[in-house]
């Protein structure tokens, strides 16, 4: 079972072999989701060279995949025009920031089962874990608290793959919560001194 402890300014995460390999798989999938061709005219070019997109000169289509839309939401669901404009100006940066967090997670996972994270790396892990959980929740149909409660209540009726996804989701929830409370505890200590 994974363990998370504070060590000085760092956070140390210890994973089992199967936990680490599973996380490598699902975070690699998330990296792929965030790098998918967005359908714009310049989609064939890597994002780093896509100056028109970086500068907000070309429109970006609203994601059709609900999981991707959850990661890159509308700025004002009641104003389509404004949301389209905002997406053109900001979505590129948002997607890059999320992809960067995922890269930090994958880099940490590549180092072995004992992973030492700096404060900034811990924050990137928290954001990356949150994004991955958002995607899994969409795939599981957990969009409201009622839907979530029902999913757990009817656990025995779930297909094997759904049950495994829910187990993975719980595991990622635990890691994200432990990382967050570790930083919160440290912050309270800092605030008092």
């Amino acid at each position: 079972m994974a363990a998370i402890d504070a060590r000085g300014d760092d956070v140390v995460l210890r994973l089992e072999d199967n936990e680490r390999s599973l996380m490598l798989t699902v975070f690699t999938d998330l990296a792929a989701l965030l790098s998918e061709d967005d359908g714009s005219e310049d989609g064939s070019r890597p994002d780093s060279e896509n100056w028109d997109a970086r500068l907000g000169l070309v429109g970006r289509p609203r994601p059709e995949d609900p999981a991707l839309l959850r990661l890159l939401p509308d700025v004002d669901p009641e104003d389509e025009e404004r949301s389209t404009e905002f997406r053109r100006l900001t979505e590129f940066d948002l997607k890059q920031a999320k992809a960067h967090n995922v890269r930090i997670v994958l880099l940490g996972l590549s180092k072995g089962n004992d992973i030492t994270l700096t404060h900034d790396e811990t924050l990137a892990w928290m954001k990356g874990l949150n994004d991955l959980r958002l995607v899994l929740a969409v795939r599981l149909g957990i969009d409201t608290e009622d839907a979530q409660d029902e999913k757990y209540a009817r656990r025995e009726e779930l297909s094997e793959s759904e049950d495994l996804t829910l187990t993975l989701y719980d595991f990622l929830t635990w890691i994200q919560d432990r990382l967050t409370t570790t930083l919160l505890t440290r912050k309270q200590g800092d605030d008092e001194t």
Partner: peptide, 10 residues
């Protein structure tokens, strides 16, 4: 439902 209370507060 996804966003943790600890994380939102953080």
């Amino acid at each position: 439902p996804v966003n943790l209370m600890s994380y939102v507060s953080y």
